[in-house]
Amino acid sequence: MTNSGIFKLAIASGKGGTGKTLLSTNLADYLARKQAVLLADLDVEEPNDALFFHAENKVITPQYKMIPDWQSDRCTLCGDCTRQCKFHAVIRLGEFITVFNELCHSCYACSDLCPEQALPMKPYRMGETRHQILNGLQLIESRLDVGQEQAVPLIHATQKYICELESKPAIQILDCPPGTSCPVVAAVDGADLVLLVTEPTPFGLNDLKLAVETMRQIDKAFAVVINRQGMGDDAVENWCKSENITVAARIPYDRQLAEQYAAAKLAWCDNTALEEALEELALFIQQKQVQYA
């Protein structure tokens, strides 16, 4: 376990629309009946976990990343910075050096290497973290400001925010961005276990394979949750068996569930099949917790 008895469970998927948010929100709510739970929405481009909860008293914390701030009086327009920046975030436009915050990766190279110290790093707002407390559930959601494209720095900032919380629930559920690229790798960093949500269709299987490949590359423990079980075929199930991958739970295909989800409603309390799947999953998580402890 990462630190002091906290179990971090990341929920991810190879592509969007497989039920990541459905699982994260319902599982968090389900577990929160009996123990303190933290749910963090790290899908910072499109966070929507909070739509499923109705909490008052939000604490909003602005989040910053460091970007270079051009000092015209010190600059000799030597152009070192523009040549150093691999992201074309620092460019020379006539007599001006212009920094494009949305492209900057905060690598500090232009700033540290500037012979005139004309590019000191300054904090720049990239988004915010909203923190809400409901009965037994702490809900944390980070959102990038409009026009910001880089998810990774905000994901890191949110992880830091969670680490610095005074009261830390022993179970932390991290709803990750979809896909298999850098934001996902950043979001599952530090997780004890990753649940990969998929659906039993050819698209679901194809995307699951990519997600599994990513988890293996970064050496993460993972298991699969099949959503909409019964909607498609057995290919996902068979593939998991052949690869020796645990299917931790199966959520049955149910039109009513899709309707409740579309209406942003938590469905587990009046959907027995979902409740049973969550129960199975809770047991699985408990076992893992004991294993890691």
């Binding site: 523009t82 920046c85 691999k86 992201f87 074309h88 975030a89 460019i91 020379r92 436009l93 006539g94 494009f100 492209l103």
Partner: peptide, 14 residues
């Protein structure tokens, strides 16, 4: 370059 093609072109145009 993976990113920043637009700003690189802007610098050229300047």
């Amino acid at each position: 370059d993976a990113h920043g093609a637009g700003t690189a072109m802007a610098q050229r145009i300047y």
